[in-house]
Amino acid sequence: MTTTLPSPSSLLPVRLRLVPPGSGPHLVDGAWWPRSEDLTVELPRLVGALPHSWPQIAHATVNAALWSSFPGRLLVANHVIELHHAAGRCTAETICLLAPGSGRWDLLVVPPGTDRAEALRLLSAADGDASSTRGSLFPHVSAHGA
């Protein structure tokens, strides 16, 4: 019998910072710093790290160019998440998580190769002024994602 051990990166905590609930409207609901460009590895880890109070995520909209693979759907925790290409309100630097009838959450994606100090600053700023967070990592993008 063969045993498959988890990869060392799968044992590391998910680098995620969420805006505190009830803290008012924000352009983004938090920030996520994935460890790799493999969406098939990173998305299940992200979904597993979300608060238990969040409903089941059914759709994720991302910029496919940021990821090494982009399947049309992904099995996560025994349910399928449909993947969509970013367009409209979902901009290149965010991931939009959707639970139909329950809510939508937009997270700033800090690219995996970002310098640690800069990434930690962006994660910390995620619960503050989202427009300054977005502008510092993506200076060519306006605060409204245009």
Rank of each mutant, 00 (worst) to 15 (best):
R89H: 11
A92F: 11
G103R: 11
L123E: 14
P111G: 05
D115T: 00
P112I: 02
P100W: 13
G128K: 04
L108N: 04
S102T: 07
S102I: 03
G113A: 09
R121E: 01
H85M: 10
G101H: 13
G88D: 12
L122T: 05
L122A: 12
D115K: 00
E118T: 01
R116P: 01
D106A: 11
S132C: 08
S131G: 13
G113Q: 11
S131W: 14
S124Y: 12
A117E: 05
L98S: 04
A130C: 09
W105V: 14
V110L: 05
E93S: 04
S102Y: 14
D127R: 07
H84V: 08
L97H: 12
V109N: 06
D127Q: 09
L98I: 10
D106V: 08
A119V: 01
G88C: 09
A125L: 03
G101D: 13
A119P: 05
G101N: 14
A99I: 05
L107C: 12
G113P: 08
A119M: 02
T94N: 11
A92M: 11
S124F: 13
S124Q: 13
D115G: 00
E93Q: 07
D129C: 06
S124M: 14
P112R: 01
G113E: 09
V109Q: 08
L98W: 08
D127P: 03
